[in-house]
């Protein structure tokens, strides 16, 4: 009885100390997108760097060429993205509106950003996303849309003059998306002290420490409380 009571109060204390940034559906969507997206990025770069015909370990395990693997996972990514955006249209609307938001205080936030990467003392902002996240969201979303549409186009036309243009769009979108995704992974990983603990917002229950939320999204936290 005492043990259960202690366990319940520990749980309640953890609940008070943390806050849920993203709900379960959003976290699942994010996980499916990054699993398929990172596999696409890996196989895509392998092919771009001339690895075609020299199978990756994944291609060997599955028993199909990397080109077919890339195409198949690409269809999966497109389906997940379309279904996710349609089913979660409210979240999509919030994502778009909050990512396109521009506030006067954004310039001050950007001025303090380089030092805050280490110190964690970010400038104040009123958004659901911080100003840097908004820029990243827009560039990442646009490059992923370009990659998805050009990818569908490439496998639909198979070849010819349209293929040449679609291949260029696909390639250049990859060049844009890659550093942006790499930046997102670096931020999320918590390597930079200022962003330590932020990965919790999308993983393992989606509850992150309130002090982390206060540091990164103060206005969102106060609206939520």
């Amino acid at each position: 009885m005492t043990t259960r009571h202690a366990s319940n109060s520990a749980q309640a204390s953890a609940q008070e100390r943390t806050t849920e940034r993203n709900n379960r559906a959003t976290r699942w969507f994010h996980a499916l997108v990054y699993i398929t997206g990172l596999t696409l990025l890996a196989t895509g770069w392998w092919l771009l760097l001339g690895g075609e015909g020299n199978p990756t370990p994944l291609a060997l395990v599955i028993g199909i060429p990397d080109t077919s693997l890339h195409t198949m996972i690409g269809w999966g990514f497109a389906l997940i993205a379309i279904i996710g955006c349609v089913v979660g249209w409210r979240a999509t609307r919030t994502f778009v509106a909050e990512s396109l938001r521009v506030d006067r205080s954004d310039a001050r936030w950007f001025a303090r950003w380089p030092a805050a990467l280490i110190s964690g003392r970010f400038g104040s902002h009123d958004g659901h996303f911080d100003p840097g996240q908004r820029v990243l969201n827009v560039v990442m979303a646009l490059s992923l849309i370009a990659l998805t549409l050009s990818g569908i186009g490439l496998v639909t036309v198979h070849g010819g003059p349209s293929f040449v243009w679609l291949a260029r769009v696909h390639k250049w979108s990859t060049y844009v998306a890659t550093p942006v995704i790499a930046g997102h992974v670096i931020v999320a990983s918590g390597i930079l002290p200022g962003y330590r603990g932020v990965w919790r917002s999308m993983h393992l229950g989606g509850r992150l420490d309130r002090s982390v939320a206060q540091r990164l999204w103060p206005a969102w936290l106060s609206r939520k409380s």
């Binding site: 699942w28 969507f29 077919s68 198949m72 999966g76 997940i80 279904i83 996710g84 089913v87 979660g88």
Partner: peptide, 23 residues
Amino acid sequence: RMSFKSWSLIAVALLAVTACGED
């Protein structure tokens, strides 16, 4: 109301159908 997980399963099934038709 279908959950996101159900929609994901439908997506995987559609993907399997698409992939089978590929080659």
